[in-house]
Simulated assay, not measured.
Amino acid sequence: MAARRALHFVFKVGNRFQTARFCRDVLRMKVLRHEEFEEGCKASCNGPYNGRWSKAMVGIGPEDDHFVELTIMASETTSLATTSWVSRSLLARLSAMLRNPVLKVTLTVSDLQKSLNYWSKLLGMKIYEKDEKRQRALLGYADNQCKLELQGIKGVVDHAAAFGKIAFSCPQKELLGLKDLMKRENHKILTPLVTLDAPGKATVQVVILADLDGHEICFVGDEVGPKGSKLLDDAMTADKSDEWFAKHNKPKASG
């Protein structure tokens, strides 16, 4: 499974102005790609919202050979939600990685052994470390890639405070087999094999799964894209969201 590679983690946010400022000015990340959409994504990239939304890919290094740390995703409808889908504490922890590459992404799981079977036996990740006493395991597709840490907890994993999606690249020829495997094993498939064609990005095929605790996992065939920072700035200037919220007397979600 060495051909698979960790790509990025997605945070869905209500206020992209604050999030973009934090990522660029505090974390010193660069905007690698930005896209604006007039309607919902057929792969449910923007969650359960059907209105306008945007996506900005930011990171310390290029997508071709770096784990891209964050995807900013927001929509007019998302901003009406009472809670933002990104927690401040999580962004605060990102600031500690300014001078270092991203080493791992941690997901909490309710049953460590069952999750290990899912991620290693079905998704093909190598187990690098396992500590049953601390209920912790470290997995990855290659030694030099960002790792996935599974942390076992008592009880049910709660996605209410913050929610996101981890993405991996995958040879296109493996996507259909991956979908069929999950179907045979009776595991959840959020988006079957679908083709996406977006501005600033090559046409890709995508499969989105959900693990035993509902963590979204996106496998894509390719990842590319230029001119991100200017596209994001232009879109934020043109969206007039502050005027919309003032007109409707609604608070704008905090990033």
Rank of each mutant, 00 (worst) to 15 (best):
N186L: 02
C170P: 07
A160Y: 01
G214V: 00
G214A: 00
K250G: 02
S241P: 00
A137S: 14
H248N: 14
G221L: 01
E185A: 10
E149L: 06
N186G: 00
G221S: 15
G164Q: 02
I208T: 14
A238F: 09
D143P: 11
V156K: 11
L212I: 06
G221E: 09
A161H: 04
E132I: 07
L148T: 07
A253L: 09
K130A: 12
H187K: 12
F219A: 08
L116N: 03
D131M: 11
A161P: 02
L181G: 09
A167L: 03
G225T: 03
I189M: 04
L122S: 06
T195W: 06
D158Y: 07
A235W: 12
M236E: 15
F163C: 08
M182Q: 01
H159G: 02
K188E: 10
D131A: 11
K230R: 14
Q135R: 15
Q151G: 09
V194L: 10
I166A: 12
K179L: 04
L196A: 04
K130I: 10
Q113F: 04
L190W: 05
H248E: 14
L139E: 10
A198N: 08
K250Q: 14
S169V: 06
L123A: 13
N249W: 01
Y118E: 13
D234P: 00
V204I: 15
Q135N: 07
L123C: 10
I127C: 13
H187T: 00
A210C: 06
D143F: 13
L123P: 07
V204G: 08
A142D: 12
D222L: 04
D234L: 02
R136Q: 09
A198C: 08
K147F: 14
S241A: 05
D222I: 04
I189R: 03
L150M: 15
G221W: 00
T191Q: 15
K252F: 13
F168I: 05
D131G: 12
R134S: 14
H215Q: 01
T195V: 13
E149R: 07
M125I: 07
L231V: 13
V156R: 10
G221F: 01
W244V: 08
P171E: 04
K230T: 08
K165G: 01
N186Q: 09
D239P: 01
Q151M: 12
N249Y: 08
C146M: 06
M236H: 09
D242H: 11
D211N: 06
E223W: 03
D233A: 10
L190Y: 07
D158C: 11
K183R: 08
K121L: 14
N249P: 00
S169P: 00
A202H: 06
L212T: 03
D239A: 06
V157T: 02
S241K: 03
K121G: 03
D211V: 05
